[in-house]
Simulated scan of single mutants.
Amino acid sequence: MNDYIKVGKIVNTHGVKGYLKCLPLTDDMERFEELKYVYTEKDNTKRKLKDVWYRNNMVYILLENINDMSTAETFRDSYISILEDQLRELPEDSYYIFDLEDMEVYSDDGEYLGKVKEIYQTGANDVYEITNKNKSFLIPAVKEVVKKVDVENKKMVINVIEGLLE
């Protein structure tokens, strides 16, 4: 299952020693401390994590063989990833964003509603953007609405409460 999972987007450099400023693509940004290595998208290279620290909801990392600002600058606007076997086990009724993307969504009476195109992390609960042709609507990721998520078959069933699809 050698699938790459994006865990951060490199948005800038920091300092002159090659640190990369990353926007974390994970709920638990301190997860980076557990990682021994990541893959850089730009050159598809496995790199050892030499240092990690945090400030203002950003992750600052120093990677093997990126030792100066000029080299670090070439990685801007690219991603760092891990392999699927580096993922943590999630609690029941929790899902990785990549598992939900493009999932087909049906009402609890079997009507096809569209596909999950975007997931917004709002703090209180996630919100899924469902699109079908030219229509788009937002549904809250709460138990009253999302009734079933079948990751294996890429299918979600929701309870269409009054006003939800308007």
Rank of each mutant, 00 (worst) to 15 (best):
I5Y: 09
V7T: 01
G8D: 07
K9L: 15
I10G: 15
T13R: 06
G18Q: 08
C22N: 10
L25G: 09
D27V: 05
D27M: 08
D28C: 07
E30R: 12
R31Y: 12
R31P: 01
R31S: 08
E33W: 04
E34L: 03
Y37T: 07
Y39M: 07
T40P: 10
E41V: 12
K42L: 13
K42V: 04
D43W: 15
N44W: 14
K48P: 04
L49R: 02
W53F: 13
R55C: 08
N56G: 13
E64S: 02
N65R: 15
N65H: 12
I66V: 13
D68G: 13
T71W: 05
A72P: 14
F75T: 04
R76M: 15
S81W: 14
S81D: 05
L83M: 06
E84H: 13
L87F: 05
E89H: 09
E89V: 03
L90Y: 07
D93R: 13
Y95R: 02
F98Q: 05
L100F: 00
L100P: 02
D102Q: 06
V105T: 01
V105Q: 01
D108L: 01
D108V: 04
D108R: 05
E111G: 10
G114E: 06
K117R: 00
N125W: 06
D126Y: 12
E129D: 01
K135V: 13
F137M: 10
I139T: 03
A141S: 09
E144A: 11
E144W: 15
E144K: 14
K148Q: 10
V149N: 00
K155A: 10
M156N: 02
V157E: 12
I158H: 01
I158C: 08
N159H: 07
N159P: 04
N159A: 12
V160T: 07
V160Q: 03
V160R: 02
